[in-house]
Amino acid sequence: MTLAATITVTDATFDAEVLCAKVPVVVDIWAAWCGPCKQIAPILDQLATDYAGRIKIVKIDADQNPEAVTAIGVTSIPTLGFYKDGARRDMLIGAHPKPVIVEKMEALLA
């Protein structure tokens, strides 16, 4: 089994990596100064491995990529956006425990 890692996206690559993805995508909108963002990062890294090939997990730095973050309507971080077939299906704002994130990911696969 290959180890999957989270993928970094930017304003320039957001559409291609998220909206045009062939598999569902979880988008982690974060910033370096955000404590709760750092809390959920290891959970997302683990889930990227657990769901490799079925769901892609990407990270976008809110400070470095204001265009994409504004376009998707993020007002608070961390925010997790759950995308399927080019559209956001769900969203979690704030740090949540792994079971809550997994439940949202499973719903994407349903």
Rank of each mutant, 00 (worst) to 15 (best):
Y83D: 13
F14M: 09
P97A: 15
V18Y: 10
A21P: 02
G53P: 11
D28K: 10
L108V: 00
A71S: 14
L109W: 00
A52W: 01
R89Q: 15
A5I: 09
M1V: 05
R88P: 11
M91R: 13
C20G: 05
T75F: 10
T6L: 10
A4D: 01
D28C: 14
K104P: 03
D28W: 08
Q46H: 08
A71W: 05
L47R: 01
I72H: 12
E67F: 03
M1F: 04
G73K: 03
P78C: 02
Q46P: 01
D63K: 01
N65G: 14
I7S: 07
K84I: 00
A12P: 07
T10S: 15
F82W: 04
K84F: 00
Q46W: 01
D11K: 07
T79D: 08
G86H: 02
E17Q: 15
T49R: 15
V25S: 06
Y51K: 01
M105G: 07
D61T: 05
A16F: 00
L19A: 11
A62W: 04
A110R: 06
D45F: 04
D61W: 06
T10K: 13
V23K: 13
A87H: 10
A107Q: 07
D28T: 13
T10L: 13
A31E: 08
A41V: 13
I72S: 10
S76P: 02
K56T: 11
A68N: 07
K56H: 08
P24Q: 09
L80C: 04
L3K: 06
T13V: 03
P42A: 15
E67S: 09
M105C: 12
P42N: 15
W30K: 07
V23P: 00
K22S: 13
A68I: 08
T70H: 09
L44S: 12
R88F: 09
V26Q: 11
I101M: 08
Y83R: 14
C34W: 02
D85A: 10
V69N: 11
V74M: 13
Y51H: 02
V23R: 14
A16Y: 01
T6A: 06
L109T: 00
M91H: 07
P99V: 14
G35I: 00
D90F: 03
D85R: 08
V25D: 02
A4H: 07
V9D: 05
I72R: 13
V26L: 14
L3S: 05
A95L: 09
V25G: 06
V25Q: 03
I57F: 01
V9A: 08
A16V: 04
A4G: 13
D28F: 12
K98I: 05
V18E: 05
G53L: 04
A5L: 12
F14S: 10
M1S: 09
D15P: 00
Y51S: 02
E67L: 14
E17T: 05
I40R: 11
T13H: 10
I72G: 13
G81S: 11
I43P: 05
A62I: 08
D61G: 06
T2M: 12
L109S: 01
A95Y: 04
G86C: 03
T10R: 13
E67V: 14
K84V: 00
V27K: 06
K38I: 13
V69L: 09
V69Y: 06
N65K: 10
A110T: 08
A12W: 02
A52K: 07
I77Y: 02
F14T: 07
M105V: 07
